[in-house]
Structure formats: structure tokens, C-alpha cells
Design a protein around this nucleic acid. Structure first.
Length: 239
DNA sequence: AACCAGGGAGCGT
DNA sequence: ACGCTCCATGGT
């Protein structure tokens, strides 16, 4: 994904790529981000292993919905659920002549589904949670439109009013959709990675790790989380 | 063929 | 505040 890309090489750009620049957060200076990371061995290793890793800036709804689906599911299966939902309830989008492609379903499209239909997309017990989120957004139970202007603490609290949304999922939405780069979501992988890398003997509680994450990684803790997370998944044999 | 998965809610202590 | 257990479904 070299900068400049295709658009710069054609005489007349047929398309405006600014959405992609936004999605990949190309305005963020990675060098400045990396400079804020703690000067310790786990971070050095993680950064060295994954040069150029970036956070995405995702759509709020797509992000929230995906992470509601993620509870107790493997990543391959999450992709499956998302693909199935999109195929059945999403709008068709340009696919470049290959397989037909579909956007992630809108809030209204999901709200119009029955729980049964969602369960038929293999959502299991997550089906009522996704449906409830769509309803609560549309009926104003939570301040959806105000989320982008809220502080991360306010937005987290607001999101956690949704059934099926706890601290981890809320933090993922803050980081990946809200652009709150200081937020450090703690999931089972990061928990294991932090224990292994920073506390090989002690095995601190989840609560303790939460506090460590909040104080140790600085203003771009979310980026640090991503480097550690993917490094741990790819190179460390955890579990 | 079990076992368990990018969590969260609802219980019990 | 903790520590359980259950929740559906499919990959390994």
C-alpha cells in the first residue's frame, strides 16, 4: 500500500481516494507515534516485527456490530458471520467484476431483521445483542449521534448501556472507530501477552493488568496494544 | 470427539 | 469487588 498509489499515476483519477487515506489513517505520523512508546524490550520487539502496522479508522456501527459478534468467537468465525450478514442484508457494492460484494448492513437493515433471521446467520446468543443495539440506537436509548463529541470515558459509559457491550468491546469501538488512540483494550490475548512479556513470574490479576496498561503505554497506548497484540499472535506461541 | 473461542451478564461468596 | 457458569455454534 505505497503512498501515492494508483490514483497518482493515471492522467485523470477516476476515483477519489480520500476515504482510503482516512480509513488507513495516513495522516498519522507513525514515527511520532512510535517515539511515545515505552523504551522496553517487549515494545522494541513488537515494533521491529511489524514495521508499518497502522490502526484503521472504522465506521462506528460496523465496528460496534462486529465486536458485538466477536464475543467468544474465533476471528475466522467472526469474519464468517460478518460476510453472511452482509450478503443477506447489505447493499451491493462495486466488486471489480469478480464475485459480487456487499457492504455491511446498515443499522436500519439490521433493526428490520427478526432475531430468528439473525440466528440463521450463525450469530447464536449474540443475535439478540446485535438486534437490541440496532433498536437502542434508532430509538434514542443511547446518544449515538453524540458519541464522536464525547470524551472516551463518557463514550465508554454510553456504549456499555447496550446489552452485550462491556469494557472490552466499548474500548475497541473507542479505539478503532472513535479514534481515541490512548485507549488500550484488554482481551484474553493481550492479557496473556502482558503476563508473559512483562510479568513472567507474578501473573497479575486482570484488574492489575488493566491498571498497568493505563499507566505504562502513554498517549498512543492503543497503537502499542496493536503492535503487542499482533506480535503476540504471530510470533509468540501463547496459551 | 472433545475442547474452546478478540466477552459479558447474572449469579453466588 | 472477586470467582464461577452459562451462553450458540463451528474450527481444529
Amino acid at each position: 500500500m505505497a503512498k501515492g498509489g494508483i490514483a497518482a499515476e493515471v492522467a485523470k483519477p477516476v476515483s477519489n481516494w480520500s476515504w482510503l487515506e482516512e480509513y488507513l489513517q495516513l495522516r498519522v505520523d507513525l514515527g511520532q507515534v512510535l517515539a511515545t512508546f515505552p523504551d522496553d524490550e517487549p515494545m522494541h520487539n513488537a515494533v521491529a516485527a511489524l514495521p508499518g502496522l497502522r490502526l484503521l479508522r472504522q465506521d462506528y456501527w460496523e465496528c460496534l456490530a462486529s465486536f458485538i459478534l466477536s464475543a467468544t468467537k474465533q476471528i475466522v468465525q467472526i469474519r464468517q458471520m460478518v460476510a453472511l450478514l452482509s450478503k443477506r442484508y447489505g447493499e451491493p457494492i462495486a466488486s471489480g467484476g469478480g464475485e459480487p460484494a456487499f457492504a455491511f448492513p446498515s443499522i436500519k437493515a439490521i433493526a428490520a431483521c427478526s432475531e430468528k433471521e439473525l440466528r440463521e446467520c450463525k450469530l447464536g446468543f449474540r443475535a439478540p445483542n446485535l438486534l437490541g443495539a440496532a433498536h437502542n440506537i434508532l430509538d434514542g436509548t443511547i446518544g449515538w449521534q453524540q458519541l464522536p463529541t464525547m470524551s472516551s470515558d463518557e463514550a465508554r459509559e454510553e456504549l456499555m448501556n447496550l446489552r452485550g457491550v462491556g469494557p472490552k468491546i466499548a474500548d475497541c469501538v473507542l479505539l478503532f472507530a472513535g479514534g481515541h488512540h490512548e485507549v488500550f483494550p484488554v482481551d484474553v490475548w493481550i492479557e496473556r501477552a502482558l503476563q508473559r512479556l512483562y510479568f513472567p513470574k507474578r501473573r497479575p490479576s486482570a484488574k492489575r493488568l488493566r491498571k498497568f496498561a493505563d499507566t505504562h503505554f502513554g498517549p498512543y497506548a492503543g497503537y502499542a496494544q496493536q503492535y503487542l497484540f499482533h506480535h503476540a499472535r504471530i510470533h509468540l506461541k501463547l496459551k
